[in-house]
Structures are given as C-alpha cells and as structure tokens.
C-alpha cells in the first residue's frame, strides 16, 4: 500500500476528476483541522477545493451521516469510505434514507486511526495509540465500492459475522442488579444532553426525534438522571440491530460517557439470540430485529 501522503494525492485527483466530469455534485472526505492531530469532514463541490483533502492517521470522523444532507437532491454524491463509512452508508440505504444509485462510493483500506485525545495529551513525538474504535474494528476496508483508491485489492471475500464477545459487556453482566444500576447512573448523570451522539450516528436518521420535540411531552428538556437515562435507553433500543459499531457516539461524547457499552450489550444479545450478525455489511441482509422467522426465540411469550 502506498504511503498516506501518496494516497492523499490520489484522493485529491480522484475527487477533482469526479467534480470536473460532473459524475457527482459533491465529494465527501476529510481535510486538515486546526491542530496536527485533527482533521474535519470536508464536503466539497468545486474542483479547486479538492486540494484541501487529506488522508492521514487522524481521519477519525465517520462520513456516512453527511449523505442525509443530500436526501432531497437529485444529484449524485461521492463519498470516501473505509469499512466503517461503508457500513454507515449501507445503514442509510437499508433504512431507505438514501438510494444506492445516488451514492458514488470511493473505497479505501484503513490502517486504523490514532486517538486524537491521547495525541493532544502526549504530544507530537510520542507513540500515539490507535483510537479505541479502531482497535476494535473488524472491517477496516470498504467491502463494495464504485471506485477504489490505493493498491488494487483482491476480490473482497463475502463478509461473514462471527459471534462477538465484548469484555466490558462480560464484566457488566457479572455485576449485581444494584451495581449495574449504579454504573448506569454514574455514566449518565454527567450527560449534557447535547445530542452529539445522536447527530453523529448513521443509525439515527429520524426526521423528527422525540428528544427534539418537547411539546409532545414524551420527554422533558430538564437535565436529570431520569431524563438522561430515558434518552440513553431510548436511543440504544432504537439503534438496536442497526448499530454498525463505528463507535463515533462514544468517541465524540464531550463528557466521555461509554455510550457503546449499551450498544455492545444489545449486539452481543442479538448474536446470542438470532445468530451472529454485523449490521451494515450488505443492504440486502435480513435484519434480525426487522424480520421474523418461526425459529426465532420467544421465551417471553
């Protein structure tokens, strides 16, 4: 594989060609942020802007969510996609938020991104560890694409999910009910309810969210443990079976709530109840909580 600097040039060239030939109206990628350890999503529409694109060890943002901004246009949008972006795009396709025909997927192979918070703390000369979400990643490459940037890849093997065991879920399950509650309360007591987790999530695509509609009085704007837990549980259950495990919610939480813990617990339960399943690998997949089979467990009936 070429170095990331070389790939950056290829990214720019590919993006420029797409915009010049009008194969897509916009290209979604990454550009440098304010600091050496930061990049930002870049949504580009003019060929000359493509010089801003970068591909480096801090391209942490999952880009899929930005496709929603093009929901109401007829034009095609190009998007750079590693495994996590790819799964996010499939999430939106499968949830009927966007049409596959309107997306031009430019596949990438991801070496794993570095932890920007650690980078800030440790400094430029230190050995910076991988971001947690990347350490846990099982699909670093886009599995299907319209264009590919980087070394040509062998034909992608059909992805097959394996039953997942998350150590943090295992230790959670060992706890007594009271300890679980305490753990849950300690995590969500500090929630600011800024909804960054919801807004970054490719599985959160409701046009109207109940947490953005206080006049219905299903939920209150008040910040207290009860409302915060209600938000956390509602979101976890709403993305159940659809969470693509990109870990963005947890990575960007301003107060470091381990948001993926609930998601992982549900993912592990789904594997256990319905067989191993990884969301977002193929938009044609049957979703375990979105379909029914006579062999499904019904212990509660």
């Amino acid at each position: 594989m070429g170095t990331m600097e070389q790939l950056t040039l290829q990214l720019r060239e590919t993006a420029r060609e797409i915009l010049e030939s009008k194969k897509a109206a916009a290209v979604i990628g990454w550009e440098m942020g304010t600091f050496w350890y930061s990049t930002a999503p870049a949504i580009l529409t003019r060929p000359e802007e493509t010089e801003r694109l970068v591909w480096n060890e801090y391209c942490l943002n999952n880009l899929a969510k930005y496709l929603l901004d093009f929901q109401n246009t007829d034009e095609k949008v190009a998007i750079f996609a590693r495994g996590c972006d790819y799964r996010g795009i499939n999430r939106l396709i499968q949830d009927k938020q966007i049409d596959r025909d309107k997306v031009l997927i430019i596949g990438l192979s991801c070496p794993g991104m570095k932890d920007d918070k650690k980078a800030r703390e440790l400094g430029q000369n230190a050995d910076i560890p991988l971001a947690k979400k990347c350490e846990e990643c099982t699909y670093p490459d886009a599995l299907a694409y319209d264009l590919w940037v980087g070394e040509p890849k062998e034909a992608a093997k059909p992805a097959k999910a394996e039953a997942k065991v998350f150590p943090e879920v295992e230790s959670l399950e060992q706890m007594t009910a009271d300890d679980k509650y305490e753990n849950f309360a300690a995590n969500y007591e500090k929630c600011l309810r800024c909804y960054a987790c919801r807004n970054v999530c490719p599985a959160c695509s409701c046009r109207e969210c109940i947490f953005g509609n206080s006049s219905k009085e299903w939920s209150a704007k008040a910040n207290n443990l009860s409302e915060n837990m209600f938000f956390a549980l509602t979101r976890a259950l709403h993305v159940a079976g659809r969470c693509i495990q990109c870990g963005e919610c947890e990575r960007i939480c301003p107060v470091n709530i381990p948001i993926m813990l609930l998601n992982k617990k549900i993912i592990q339960d789904i594997d256990h109840l319905f067989g191993p399943y990884d969301a977002g690998l193929d938009p044609e997949d049957k979703m375990p909580l979105g379909s029914f089979e006579f062999t499904d467990p019904e212990e509660f009936m």
């Binding site: 930002a40 999503p41 870049a42 949504i43 969510k65 930005y66 600011l192 309810r193 800024c194 909804y195 960054a196 919801r198 807004n199 970054v200 960007i252 301003p254």
Partner: peptide, 10 residues
C-alpha cells in the same frame, strides 16, 4: 460539516 449538536453551546 456542522452536525447541529449542542456540544459547543453546552
């Protein structure tokens, strides 16, 4: 690029 979350304001 804004996600319209309230992190900055809160």
């Amino acid at each position: 690029k804004c996600l319209n979350c309230g992190a900055c304001t809160y």
